[in-house]
Design a protein around this nucleic acid. Structure first.
Lengths: 263, 263
DNA sequence: AGTGAACGGTGATTGAGATCACACACAGGG
DNA sequence: CCCTGTGTGTGATCTCAATCACCGTTCACT
């Protein structure tokens, strides 16, 4: 069943890596700087799951396992019993679902600070999405039982978990709106490009963004075929609105994109 | 802009009702049996948000307001600041989102025990869905601040909230799968009809289900046009697979529906 | 009884996008 | 160096479902 339409599934699951010894960071896998302890982690941001008080953070530190994955690794798969959650420390991953014909839909690209599989663990159900890394990633794994105990013992962590799940809900609803309420592929694509742009800088200057997604992946993000994405992108290029070369997106006319989205 | 395609929005918001006096239940609005106190509520089921220990339940009882709504009432609207959450005690409501052309998508039909607006309150954002009652409903309203305090003080309630939000996530993802990964309207419709069937009774006997949804609403549930839904339903009737008369759905051949869903 | 709204049923037309089928560029690896 | 795989660009075709335009029915309300 591994047809050419779902090549990513064939890349396989990589085993979890643990740094051999906490002190030695020179030989970190996949060239990632290793973070051993949540308490001393300097990657942590305000919206991170792991932005907790010292007490809760020590508990988290105690039960988590840091794991590294190369690009293209399947972290978890749709249908598996939820064995635990993964906090993304570094790197990005795509959350996707696939039907039996191999057609894939990407719901979201998740980045540092986001948690994978959290709501499946909390609800006690199977994972409902497949997660594949887009880059070498460092993830902190917390097993199901440890996680639930953590949430019960630290009300703060539980509230933060609820907030994270809420945000997942919102991005899911956004995806529904984008896929279900748009008129054309052009509209969906324009909306996507605008999402990728950093905030601010409304003025006319062209904006460049780095992102490494193939046309195929873009088509899976907006629910269209690869060919239509290619065609629509070249249409935008012809109209001098936006241009995608390799991994560089250049938006020349942001307001034109907005006009397209408005319908 | 209130075109004929969005007539439901014109029905307006009804004011909240409070039963005039706790003891008097004869004059309950809209013919609903009134439930005054969560602690003595006999409607409560295992998966209900309000299935809590006595302590937490008393706190909930203290801060909640019971409100009744007629059919077609807008409980909350997309874009409003999240003023609080509503627990559905009785009745059913549709969760929907609308684009500026008036095209509507229904994400889910929520019933007793489910919570409306919870994840918006937890995340501190605006409501992202509009909720309209399908029947006379009794809802328990809990204001934002009260709710957040409740979640902070009762770890149990917080965990339960997280579970509810998780389930919302899952149904959102299910909706995405249904809308984004189906080949045809026929497939989406078959999936929907199967969802409505009660579990069990695999055998050949025809199954009858009561549900009061118009073709228009069904079309909004699966992201299709009203006409195509009508046509597809009559196709199913012609093939002796399923039949929808008024509010009664009769499925004659469940396995044929399954075959359609499998693709 | 009469009126209007909401709902359901059907035909005709049309267009957006899926699909198929190539051709080309480019990278990495033997 | 060739060879292979992966990603991209483009034409030709075809199909499903949206859309428009009606009509009949039912039901609530005056």
């Amino acid at each position: 069943m591994a047809t050419a339409t779902a090549p990513t599934l064939a890349r396989g699951v990589l085993p979890h890596f643990e740094p051999a010894e906490p002190g030695i960071k020179a030989h970190s896998p996949y060239g990632l700087p290793i973070v051993d302890h949540c308490t001393t982690c300097n990657l942590r941001g305000a919206n991170f799951f792991c932005n907790l008080t010292a007490t809760a953070l020590r508990s988290l530190d105690w039960v988590k396992h840091v794991t590294s994955y190369p690009e293209g690794a399947l972290v978890l798969m749709e249908g598996q019993a939820a064995r635990g959650a993964y906090v993304i420390c570094q790197g990005r991953a795509k959350l996707m679902t696939t039907n039996r014909e191999g057609k894939t839909l990407i719901l979201k690209i998740a980045g540092p600070g986001e948690v994978l599989g959290l709501h499946s663990v909390v609800a006690g159900t199977a994972y409902e999405l497949t997660v594949e890394t887009l880059q070498p990633c460092q993830l902190a794994f917390v097993g199901r039982d440890d996680l639930l105990r953590l949430l019960k013992e630290h009300g703060e962590a539980c509230l933060r978990a609820a907030q994270h799940i809420s945000r997942d809900c919102q991005s899911a609803v956004d995806a529904i709106r984008s896929i279900g309420l748009s008129h054309s592929v052009l509209q969906k694509l324009a909306r996507l490009l605008l999402q990728w742009l950093p905030e601010g800088r409304e003025n006319g200057a062209a904006v460049r963004v780095k992102l490494a997604l193939t046309h195929e992946e873009i088509s899976q993000l907006i629910g269209a075929s690869r060919e239509t994405v290619t065609r629509t992108l070249s249409e935008l290029k012809k109209k001098q609105i936006a241009e995608l070369n390799g991994s560089t997106l250049m938006v020349r006319d942001r307001s034109a994109l907005k006009a397209i989205v408005e319908g």
